[in-house]
Computed example of a mutant assay.
Amino acid sequence: MSEGGRKKTACVTGRNGYIASVLIKMLLQKGYAVKTTVRNPGTCRLQALGPLQVLRADLDDEGSFDDAVAGWDYAFLVAAPVNLHSKNPEKELIEPAVRGTLNVMRSCAKAGTVKRVVLTSLAAAVSGRPLQGSGHVLDEESWSDVEYLTANKSGPWGYPVSKVLSEKETMSWFPNAKLAGDEAAFGVLRGIEMATGCVPLVHVADLCRAEMFVAEEDAAAGSCSDEVLQKPRVSLSSAKLVSEGFEFKYQTLGEIYDDVVEHGKALGILPS
């Protein structure tokens, strides 16, 4: 992948994250030169795949992303504070998320070369709201109800609030899940299903392909998979993303589950 004889370049924040590692691998395989950030840099096995620089940056350190995005084409914002069981979500989750997002955006603006910033969202950014009945279709025009979430403070409410506020701050600039016996993680999934009647899923490869798609396509903006359980009260629409030319490679839950199991075996967290 090149423009005028030179490689396209991309910065991916949060190298240690699951999504970031898959995205970095895809970008390198597509011929990108990549910079990625982490709080404590070290060697990275992905460097064997292509030109990858690992830099130190911290969401809390103003200006620490300057070198990571300087002269680069695209910035993929994947890094975010995650603590679903925080006792003080405002101080430990929400404020750092918004502050960190603005920190990266300021670095992108300072660089003057970044063509597009791709911010990774999640279903909770649109589905955290009081919902009656069924048949709700949520898309990029939908937002979780921050006032409702902060008033009720039920479940991991701080995370969706942090995503909503971070995304809105980003828009103002431009008009690791474990599934091997982790009861706390399963509890979060059960809470999502009880609230919405579904557990929205998308294959991580399709997610990363979509991130690259919206970075590269001039008209692109949006999204998440509409793969849901049988009778959901809520579904997430990918219509805008699909209408712009993106195609999901993984269409069934079986395909997603198969890859999750194989990856779990490779990591040693599931029996072979």
Rank of each mutant, 00 (worst) to 15 (best):
Lys178Ser: 14
Asp218Leu: 14
Ser154Glu: 14
Gly187Ile: 13
Lys115Val: 01
Ala215Ser: 06
Tyr148Asn: 04
Val164Leu: 09
Ala125Thr: 12
Asp218Pro: 12
Gln132Leu: 11
Trp173Phe: 15
Pro200Met: 08
Thr196Val: 08
Val188Ile: 15
Gly158Arg: 13
Thr113Lys: 12
Leu149Thr: 05
Leu149Trp: 06
Asp139Cys: 03
Gly158Pro: 01
Trp157Cys: 02
Trp173Thr: 07
Lys153Gly: 07
Val214Pro: 04
Gly112Trp: 07
Tyr159Asn: 02
Gly197Leu: 05
Cys208Leu: 05
Asp139Phe: 06
Met194Thr: 12
Gly112Asn: 08
His203Ser: 11
Lys178Gln: 12
Leu165Glu: 00
Phe174Glu: 03
Val126His: 00
Val161Phe: 10
Ala185Met: 14
Gly135Glu: 00
Leu119Gly: 05
Ser162Phe: 04
Gly191Val: 05
Gly135Leu: 02
His203Thr: 01
Thr170Ala: 15
Glu216Phe: 06
Leu189Asn: 04
Lys110Gln: 01
Pro130Cys: 02
Val126Met: 08
Val202Ala: 09
Ser162Gly: 00
Cys198Asp: 15
Pro156Leu: 00
Asn152Arg: 15
Leu131Ile: 15
Val117His: 00
Lys178Asp: 13
Gly128Trp: 11
His203Gln: 01
Gly133Pro: 09
Trp143Phe: 13
Trp157Thr: 06
Asn152Ile: 04
Gly158Asp: 03
Ala185His: 10
Ser134Arg: 11
